[in-house]
Amino acid sequence: MRLGERASGGIDVIFRGRGISRGLARGEVLKFVEPFSFLGGVDPKSGELRVGKGNLRDHVFVFPCGKGSTVGSYVIYDLKVNGNLPAAIINSTVETIVATGAVISGVPLVDSVDIDLLRDGDSVTVNGGTGEVILEGVVMQRTATCFLRYGGEILMLKRSDKVGSFQGKWAGVSGYIEDGETARETAIREVFEEVGMSGITLSAPVRRMIREDDNIWCVEAFLAEAPTREVDLDWEHTDHLWVEAGKVRDMDTVPGLLDILDQLL
């Protein structure tokens, strides 16, 4: 991903997916979170979804993948005949039925895009030729996170109400990546500032993007063995706990944390 030109209230983010069906279109996202069958899933006469809510017409229809009868390809064509085609389709992983329907109906289709980063009402431009999806008006937040481990337990910190985001949630050591800084440097700096530890060795990073309101958090996360159980908290946190990895899921954590921690461990 790279940053595009500035737009009002945020920037444009470009995702590089795989172009499956050609064409260029812009529209508002209508998202369906489960595998979708066009046969039975939408009324071609009106464009109204029969499962879930909304109308496909002129929307960028986002769903993980197609399923069901191969007749679904012709249902997409039926939408075209009735003037109810979606502007474009974005899938996580496309399969034959949806690809066929999109191609024969001339709907731009891109797959291999992380659809968790898109939500209803987003303005997006889809280029089915290049595979580019441009998401307009979001704020990119680049952060680094470090999970400290001591005796098999993970250090969790409770975010104070003085910090700018996710107040009251449990998180690892984390902070914004400042200009001219690498994620590694941020992690080491934040560990020293937030819990007073130094001399740590960071693991290989896990990278994740997480959508939250109009922000996209680009998180680069590391694991490190802590030299001590002694924690010296700064103003950013109100509490700390050393927790067995399996118990982290019982805590009220910041978005995406469990997934990232799973990967690091």
Binding site: T70, V71, Y74, V75, I76, Y77, D78, V81
Partner: peptide, 20 residues
């Protein structure tokens, strides 16, 4: 080729064939 019966192809299928 499959996709021959009007029952399974429906109007969309017929119109696609007409165009092609």
């Amino acid at each position: 080729l499959s996709g021959v019966s009007y029952k399974t192809m429906g109007e969309g299928g017929l119109l696609f064939l007409k165009e092609l």
